[in-house]
Amino acid sequence: MNFIQQLRKNKQGFLLVDAIIGVLVVAIGLVALAALYTYGIGVMVSADRQEKAVQIAAEKIELLKAADGHSSSDIKEIVEYINKNENNKLFQDGIEYQINAQGGAASLGNSYPGEDDLYLVRVEVKWTDPQQQALDLQTYIRTKD
Rank of each mutant, 00 (worst) to 15 (best):
M1D: 02
F3W: 14
I4C: 13
L7R: 15
R8P: 01
R8Y: 14
K9F: 14
G13Q: 05
F14H: 02
L16P: 01
L16T: 12
V17C: 06
D18F: 10
D18V: 06
A19Y: 06
I20Q: 01
I21S: 11
V23T: 11
L24I: 12
L24V: 14
V25G: 04
V25Q: 12
V26C: 07
V26R: 07
A27F: 13
I28H: 04
I28Q: 11
I28W: 07
G29F: 00
L33I: 09
Y37L: 11
G40R: 12
I41W: 13
I41D: 07
I41G: 09
G42D: 14
V43H: 13
M44N: 15
M44H: 15
S46E: 13
A47F: 08
D48I: 10
R49I: 00
E51C: 06
K52V: 12
K52C: 08
K52R: 15
V54H: 04
A57Y: 01
A57K: 00
E59Q: 14
E59R: 11
I61M: 13
I61S: 13
L64A: 04
K65R: 15
D68S: 15
G69D: 03
S72G: 06
D74P: 05
K76M: 04
K76C: 01
E80Y: 00
Y81P: 01
N85L: 02
N85S: 05
N85K: 01
E86D: 11
N87L: 02
N87K: 07
N87V: 02
K89T: 13
K89V: 12
L90Y: 01
F91H: 08
F91L: 12
F91V: 13
D93T: 09
D93Q: 15
D93Y: 03
G94A: 10
E96Y: 00
Q98H: 09
N100Y: 11
Q102Y: 11
Q102C: 05
G103D: 02
G103Y: 02
G103I: 02
G103P: 03
G104N: 02
A105K: 02
S107Y: 01
G109E: 06
G109R: 07
N110Q: 14
Y112C: 08
Y112K: 13
P113K: 14
G114C: 05
G114K: 12
E115S: 13
D116C: 03
D117S: 10
L118A: 03
L120Q: 06
L120K: 11
R122Y: 04
V123H: 04
V123C: 08
E124S: 10
E124H: 04
K126M: 07
W127G: 03
W127Q: 08
T128V: 00
Q132H: 07
Q132K: 08
A134V: 06
A134I: 09
D136P: 00
Y140L: 09
Y140Q: 04
I141F: 05
R142C: 06
R142M: 09
K144E: 05
K144G: 04
K144D: 08
